[in-house]
Write a protein that binds this DNA or RNA. Structure first.
Lengths: 343, 343
DNA sequence: TAATTTCACCGAAACGTTTCGGTAACAAAC
DNA sequence: GTTTGTTACCGAAACGTTTCGGTGAAATTA
């Protein structure tokens, strides 16, 4: 455990004051090109790495940002979002010397406490707020705490900086795709109504159908899980005559769509011959199940990249505007097809 | 942005020296019960929270530990392990004032760099090493860096502290279960050979079969993905006569077992009537697919709990021994059944 | 040559803790 | 009544940076 080399060592070796070392290494003016070179060389030879702790205390910064996910582990497990989202965040954070602290709160109350304690001891300089809920209490909390934050896929009118990926284009494309295939009886399986993105997707679906002059059809509440898709299939399909069933169903995420597909198969309903099913997300699994799942593909990694960029700017106090990334797009695979011919 | 209340404010308010405040608040001796109360009261009234940065600099600690995940995002997405593992880690870290920094490196080289930079600026006090590879370079690296570390599911002889969950009991149970059902032709779909746990599972499988006096059968290499399960099913089942096929297959994780199941169905092979399939992990999805997947269930959350406890002890220099948690156990569901009768 | 500006460089303070040696005050022992 | 011991408390240093005011010397101007 050889003792760490500090700025004092570098100063000694280069024969200058430590303030000069600091200036030189941070590219500040006031140090001649000649001594700057000498200092840089000394630092290199000694293998000097500025101590994060010293910088942190002096700069009143943690050089860390936080992400608190408030989902129960199972949903997290099977959700494509966070892996890629975090990966995207990393690519921005790392080059700028920032790191990500991840916390998990299964209970909403617990989540708030996590934010509170992150702020109390200034462990992070800012936080991401994902999985926004309706009237999400975290918004007021970060405002009260004066904690820089960016929201992910927030509704319009969100009072903090936000990064968004629009779902309306993709869902409209999906509806047009289905309408073009001759479907007229639709259904939608939502996510839990406490999440705003569940409502966002449902609204986009309904709007697109209305715009096409077609009836919106059944709306049943799901829960974003495989199991929820199975249950929704039971509600919408079991015990109904073929001409009373919807012929095209959108589930609000891929995992529940896959569950829906599975249950439909068990009920003897052929996809896509008797029924078209689509999801939302674009998880890899969807391209491996049979039939392959038609879906609206999002790009969580890109969302993470922009969210991180935005958060760092917010922390630096740079004037920032919300960021909209390219909309989610329809990906047609084999779980959707022509509407069955009535006979 | 009201200025933060520091230990100086507390000292002033209580009319004592700051060193006394520090002693009082950290329950060190040398301060009378009377003034201790006065100090605690003053701290409470002012809402004093000790600055992590100050403590960090003084104590030469980051109060943070690191986890570097070196998987590509997709595997991470669908892997049950990390969500629960991290959840377990959190429950130990949080009460002790520690936090978790999560980093992702898709390339192995990149991963090493992450560890290096975490250590260079002392961002963490210790790290987890999961997904151990054969001759994993991270072992030498943390030793060279003097970075406290604990390995997760390491092989015997691992030179650092380690926490392990044995898979041999569960896999032996699985083999006994299958043998009891009359199976005699087996096959195993491994994980990528560069991961030690792939080898561990395969060895447990082979050993149990040999112990039962039965032929080990085919071993094909998979990759822990759904897709890999599909491919393995093609290799093992497609174009083979029923009496040349294995009748019982273990895939080395659930996701690939589910892929295997799906492909078997497409090939017209009924599970469990014609073929028994089992997985390993115990992910929730396995209990939703039909047939429900028989598996050997691990407890990643518990593994996270113990790994975190062990890491903190290692950091504190407390004498530590490796921890073995309860073995993974067989969970029989409906994807395994009696061996088909030859006729 | 004297006054002024510019510039490289330095020393010290500040960030907020913990720790350690020291010092009064007072009690117990000889 | 001096010694010894104990206790409560204090001041200052240390952790490793950045920043800011200051100083001397060289360069510019008058």
């Amino acid at each position: 455990m050889s003792n760490r080399v500090t700025i004092v060592d570098v100063a000694a070796k280069a024969g200058v004051a430590i303030s000069s070392v600091s200036s030189a290494l941070n590219n500040r003016p006031g140090v001649s090109e000649d001594t700057r070179r000498r200092i840089v060389e000394a630092a290199r030879e000694l293998g000097f790495v500025p101590s994060l702790r010293g910088r942190s205390l002096s700069a009143k910064r943690a050089f860390t940002v936080g992400l608190v996910v408030h989902r129960d582990p199972y949903v997290l497990e099977s959700d494509p979002f966070f892996g890629s989202f975090i990966g995207g965040i990393e690519t921005v954070l790392d080059p700028r010397g920032y790191a990500l602290i991840l916390q998990m709160g299964s209970e909403p109350v617990e989540t708030l406490d996590r934010y509170r304690s992150l702020a109390a001891n200034r462990r992070v300089d800012g936080v991401f707020i994902s999985d926004l809920g309706v009237d999400d209490p975290r918004i007021a909390l970060v405002q009260e705490l004066g904690l820089p934050a960016v929201g992910v896929n927030a509704d319009p009118g969100f009072p903090l900086a936000a990064v968004r990926q629009s779902h309306v284009e993709g869902i409209r494309e999906l509806v047009e795709h289905l309408v073009g295939l001759g479907h007229t009886r639709f259904a939608h399986v939502t996510g839990p109504h406490e999440f705003i993105h569940a409502g966002q997707r449902q609204r986009a679906w309904s709007d697109a159908l209305e715009a096409a002059g077609l009836p919106v059809g059944d709306i049943v509440e799901g829960d974003f899980t495989y199991e929820g898709g199975v249950a929704a299939a039971d509600r919408l399909l079991a015990g109904r005559a073929p001409d009373e069933r919807p012929t095209a169903v959108m589930c609000s995420n891929d995992l529940s769509a896959i569950g829906f597909l599975g249950r439909a198969g068990e009920l003897g309903i052929r996809v896509p011959d008797d029924l078209s099913v689509a999801g939302f997300d674009g998880i890899e699994l969807g391209s491996y199940v049979r039939p392959m799942l038609t879906t609206v593909a999002t790009t969580p990694r890109l969302l993470g990249v922009e969210a991180a960029r935005l958060l760092l700017e917010t922390i630096n106090g740079t004037a920032v505007v919300d960021i909209d990334i390219e909309p989610a797009r329809l990906v047609v695979r084999s779980s959707t097809g022509p509407a069955p011919q009535p006979r």
